[in-house]
Design a protein around this nucleic acid. Structure first.
Length: 456
RNA sequence: UCCCCGGUAGCUCAGCCGGUAGAGCAGGUGGCUGUUAACCACUUGGUCGGGGGUUCGAGUCCCUCCCGGGGAGCCA
């Protein structure tokens, strides 16, 4: 009798009586005198499969090895909701006294310290299946709309946009750094003959592709060397950056809204079981919020109107809202959580608090920027219409104190066939927090990198 | 980086005005039952985050460093 090797996910689709072999890791085990129940999980879906072992069928010494965390193969006949085991093979044991995962719930803080094992838990199994589904949805969304996927460089030499501190990339011997006669670091002797960094954004490079392929997107890792210690920040995270020629800010906002709704609907349809777990155990508003947002229309208002609304609100602020200052976290949350109770897009920020590449409005005080704020998570998308006028970009570079020579190729885009264009950046992990209700960004990325933490 | 809170058994925590360390769960042993965060009985297990100080005596008070969490800034 030959049995078919299947995943737990597939097994639930097979008829009773099917002879199958399952392989995976033991979640828990319960013993009776003449019968043993084993929960087997292989990560293929949230549910485990219950294995029933009647006494005498499996040697005692084998049964003894089957403890929480051990890896086994089990063959037998499927019957409703479980597998009646005829034969078991143990691949690897897991000493119960040493195996850190118990049947009981653990704190996220503890599980973070065992990131190599936490993926075997309910929460993190669900989280990373959702992350997989979300990544798939990202590509599906853009590919269905004829966007070209572009891999922008991880290593960059453009001393970028002032978008936060950067990690240096060097092959110099740090114990013996070459110096110029003046005593400065002699970058000529470094690998790239100039300072190099890990990218903080693929946007500038993506713009070059957008001005050839019309619609493009990036999806890759980005790095920030900021000493940020919050549940919303990572030193290494994944960002999705679409960039579209011939799109103005309205087109850009429409796409952002469509994108969020598409990925939410995709998750609701394809990750239902995992999301139901989050809804039950992590954040009981996740499902209702997602379903609500998938059907709602995002609120829109200008930065200037937002400031007014915040000033009119009967609320005492730690930082009173004031035109010209960036919105504080408390302001953003109030807009999305209290005033609108749904995603809000704030546009047209003062130019002095935004980067050089954003298109300057006719009032010459504001730029065509947009931030999408969602309840619970805050800023999930930041984007803008790009400044396509060569003279204005140059002026903005000078105003911000950047070296226009370093941006010669970026300025070329404005000299040769320039067009209006727009784009935005979306943090994959922020989206994950929104989908799962998990409150710490370190719990939605496999191996989080934060100040002082790069284990695993 | 700043401001709060915390660090005691493998995990989650209690430990009062300083007097010499405890519970639940997990683990082990036995029992019982088609069990499902199983149940019942017994039981192993601790440099009280590190260092320094005060004191007859410090888990407890003081200083300092490290680590974790929350808030703020930076942003996605």
């Amino acid at each position: 009798m030959k049995s078919q090797i299947t995943s737990v996910k597939q097994a639930y689709l097979l008829p009773a009586g099917s002879e199958i072999t399952l392989r995976g890791w033991v979640r828990s085990r319960r013993d009776s005198k003449d019968i043993t129940f084993i929960e087997l999980n292989d990560g293929s879906r949230f549910r485990s499969m219950q294995l029933v072992v009647e006494s005498g069928l499996v040697p005692d010494e084998t049964l003894r090895e089957i403890t929480t965390g051990s890896s086994i193969a089990a063959s037998g006949a499927l019957q409703p909701v479980e597998l009646k085991v005829a034969e078991v093979h143990v691949y690897g044991t897991a000493d119960p006294a040493a195996y850190p995962l118990q049947k009981k719930g653990h704190s996220f803080e503890f599980l973070r310290e065992i990131a190599h094992l936490r993926v075997r838990s309910n929460t993190f199994g669900a989280a990373f299946r959702v992350r997989n589904a979300l990544s798939h949805a990202v590509h599906t969304f853009f590919q269905e709309r004829d966007f070209i996927y572009v891999q922008t460089p991880i290593i960059t030499t453009s001393d970028c946009e002032g978008a936060g501190a950067m990690f240096n990339v060097t092959s110099l011997n740090l114990k013996n750094i070459p110096r110029t006669p003046a005593g400065d670091i002699d970058w000529q002797q470094d690998f790239f003959t100039r300072p190099a960094y890990l990218t903080v954004s693929g946007q500038l490079e993506a713009e070059t592709f957008a001005l050839a392929f019309t619609k493009v997107y990036t999806f890759g890792p980005t790095f920030r060397a900021e000493n940020s210690n919050t549940p919303r920040h990572l030193a290494e995270f994944w960002m999705i950056e679409p960039e579209m020629a011939f799109y103005d800010l309205e087109d850009n906002m429409r796409l952002a809204e469509e994108f969020l709704k598409f990925t939410i609907r995709h998750a609701l349809e394809n990750s239902r079981e995992d999301l139901e777990f989050f809804n039950q155990r992590v954040e009981k508003t996740v499902l209702s919020t997602l379903e609500h947002v998938a059907e709602s229309t995002f609120a829109h208002l200008s930065y200037t109107d937002a400031i007014k609304a915040l000033q009119d609100a009967r609320k005492t602020w730690e930082f009173p809202p004031e035109w010209g200052h960036d919105l504080q976290t408390e302001h953003e949350r109030f807009l999305s959580e209290e005033i609108f109770k749904k995603p809000v897009i704030v546009t047209d920020y003062p130019k002095d608090i935004k980067p050089f590449y954003m298109r300057v409005n006719d009032d010459s005080r504001t730029v065509r920027a947009m931030d999408v704020l969602v309840p619970r998570v805050g800023e999930i998308i930041g984007g803008s219409q790009r400044e396509e006028r060569a003279d204005v970009v140059v002026q903005r570079l000078r105003e911000t104190g950047l070296d226009e020579k370093a941006y010669w190729w970026y300025l070329d885009l404005r000299r040769f066939g320039s067009v209006p264009h727009s784009g935005f950046g979306l943090g994959l992990e922020r989206m994950m927090m929104y989908l799962t209700g998990l409150k710490n960004i370190r719990d939605v990325i496999p191996f989080p990198r934060t100040p002082g933490n790069a284990d695993f």
